[in-house]
């Protein structure tokens, strides 16, 4: 393995973790809003808040890790993506900021339960993946162009691109599907039957759209970026495994069996698809300008970063384990029997 590949794998892994934890977070907000809208709010709010409250900051750090890490390992990306993403990334930042801080304001501070607020919070959970996911489309090339040596984003081409829109739709369905499966499991652990049933229903509803849109992207790519498409076909068997894992999840949820395993299979499904997609994108960071090789940092820095990363993990993994043991796997906490908030 070269340093470049270690670097991109680490970043891709953290992006994947962000996708999973953020999807749970974004989707939870949406389901909460939707159930408020249909007057079923009391069923979900407790479950959702109990999971989100201690972990939302951690979710955010995964995102920070990714964008700090990519500048560290691949400084050239700052030039292309930094310049062109000013507007979309700023919009995403504003949404993230309002969402994060108002979650804290509402749940720790002022105990706001106003409907308008709940709707806004839910809506922001959908707008965010919609604002973040176009970056994946941009990396396929054709949207970032050069003008006299400085890159710019061709908004018209981007907004009329079926590829961009299908990635946006995929991000939405995936968010809702991931979140629903997770919350089914969490609600079941909490012994809350009503919430489990409701979330199970949502999980089944969103399973179909999620897999259809995911497949759709592969076909969109055929027209947009044939080179990438061909590489995806080479990896068809990984996508097949991913599909089997998907079937497994749906089966278990359908049969109301072992929701924990169902969620693990779901993580496996996204993990395989995400890494196969990433591998087929290799070596490009941005078609056709940037590859992981020509944008890579110097060797001294790369080694320093990897050493720091390993040391960091040594610190992080036990801490995360403690967090999960106390809040995700602690029966009393999950069931809401113990409230020890400051």
């Amino acid at each position: 393995m070269t340093l470049e590949i270690i670097g991109i794998s680490v970043l891709w892994l953290f992006l994947f973790l962000y996708v999973i934890v953020a999807s749970i977070d974004f989707g939870a907000g949406f389901f909460n809003a939707y159930s408020a809208f249909t007057n079923k709010q009391h069923i979900l709010t407790g479950i959702i808040q109990r999971y989100l409250s201690p972990v939302w900051e951690v979710t955010n750090v995964f995102f920070v890790f990714f964008f700090v890490g990519i500048i560290g390992f691949f400084p050239q990306t700052a030039f292309y993506y930094g310049t062109t993403l000013l507007v979309p990334a700023s919009i995403a930042l504003v949404l993230l900021a309002i969402r994060g801080s108002y979650y804290a304001f509402a749940t720790y501070g002022a105990k706001i339960n106003h409907r308008g607020y709940i709707y806004m919070y839910g809506l922001s959970g959908l707008l965010l993946p919609a604002a973040l996911s176009p970056v994946l489309a941009m990396s396929e090339g054709g949207f970032i162009k050069l003008d006299d040596g400085s890159p710019y984003l061709d908004y018209w081409t981007l907004f009329t691109s079926p590829l961009m829109w299908s990635i946006v739709v995929l991000s939405l369905t995936a968010v809702l599907y991931i979140s629903a499966v997770f919350l089914t499991w969490y609600a079941n652990k909490a012994g809350d039957e009503k919430a489990t049933d409701l979330m199970r229903k949502y999980a089944l509803v969103w399973a179909g759209p999620a897999i259809i849109t995911a497949t759709g992207i592969i076909f969109e790519l055929r027209g947009h970026n044939p080179e990438h498409y061909a590489r995806i076909l080479d990896l068809w068997w990984v996508f097949a495994i991913s599909f089997l894992l998907f079937v497994g999840t749906v089966y278990l949820v359908w049969k109301r069996r072992n929701y924990g395993l169902a969620f693990i299979l779901l993580v496996g499904q996204f993990f395989t698809a995400f890494f196969a997609y990433g591998a087929s994108h290799y070596p490009h960071l941005l078609y056709p300008y940037l590859t992981i090789y020509d944008s890579f940092t110097n060797e001294a820095m790369a080694i320093a970063l990897i050493v720091a990363f390993i040391a960091g993990l040594g610190l992080l993994l036990p801490s995360l384990y403690l967090l999960f043991r106390l809040f995700l796997f602690d029966k009393d906490y999950v069931k809401g029997k113990s409230d020890y908030h400051a």
Partner: peptide, 26 residues
């Protein structure tokens, strides 16, 4: 890039234990 990268681990560390500290009072 090194200290910027290390900073993220400091954030992680802080965020994790802040969540734990706040929800384990008593």
């Amino acid at each position: 890039a090194l200290p910027l990268f290390m900073e993220v681990f400091a954030f992680f560390f802080e965020a994790i234990f802040l969540g734990i500290y706040l929800y384990t009072w008593d």
